[in-house]
Design a protein around this nucleic acid. Sequence first.
DNA 1: ATATTATATTAGATTATGCTAATTTATGGA
DNA 2: TCCATAAATTAGCATAATCTAATATAATAT
Lengths: 113, 113
Amino acid sequence: MLAEDLLRLLGSTNRLRIVERLVAGECSVKTLEAELAIRQPTLSQQLGELRKAGLVIDRREAQSVHYSMAPDHIEQVQRVLSALNSADAQRSHKPKSETRPVHAAQFGRVLSD
Amino acid sequence: MLAEDLLRLLGSTNRLRIVERLVAGECSVKTLEAELAIRQPTLSQQLGELRKAGLVIDRREAQSVHYSMAPDHIEQVQRVLSALNSADAQRSHKPKSETRPVHAAQFGRVLSD
DNA sequence: ATATTATATTAGATTATGCTAATTTATGGA
DNA sequence: TCCATAAATTAGCATAATCTAATATAATAT
């Protein structure tokens, strides 16, 4: 995925909110729908865009489908998101030595370090 | 300017190329036109978008108009741009203690530190 | 099997975006 | 003044993006 594509994907309200939520941890479509107040088809379409770009992955569990950030991209996305806040400017991001699973609450932890 | 707006502005090929060039230093429209091979009206329109968002500033000098990154936003943009490259992940960006003019070649310098 | 819940897909309308061509405005020189 | 150069603006078009409503699919429970 090109840098430009990532920027474009994050440059729409709904997708940015979805990604911000997923960076905080895996979430079902149903929960996203409730938390973000985005209608189901819109949500499914935008999740589809993010999935097509490889930015998120999905996992079926019974009736529901759970989305989370793709491991390959979560760090990049975290860097970009925190780069947007100048308050966060002086914090360096840890290099990729920390290779444990980062599917949940990673962004929040970095912010509160 | 909202984070989303910055991401959207950077999420188009021409605007991203323009910003990448301006982060390297001030540039006239004419020079941008030649360097980026973007037609004059397109260039002027996209520069207008960037200017309207406060991301770039312009300065008239004789017949030509010179654009540069807005001081208020250059560091944020640099952070976002370098956040896109994982190779650059571990480099921290200097806090704003360094308050000298940063209108030229700032991004290149950071990359080659 | 049928119904229920969750998600995806399709179709369609509306709006936004990004380009080109043509024109206009601004500046400086002959 | 008249011309040349640089940049901005306008108009128009083609395409992309984004939403809603309706429908289809998937999984589960009764």
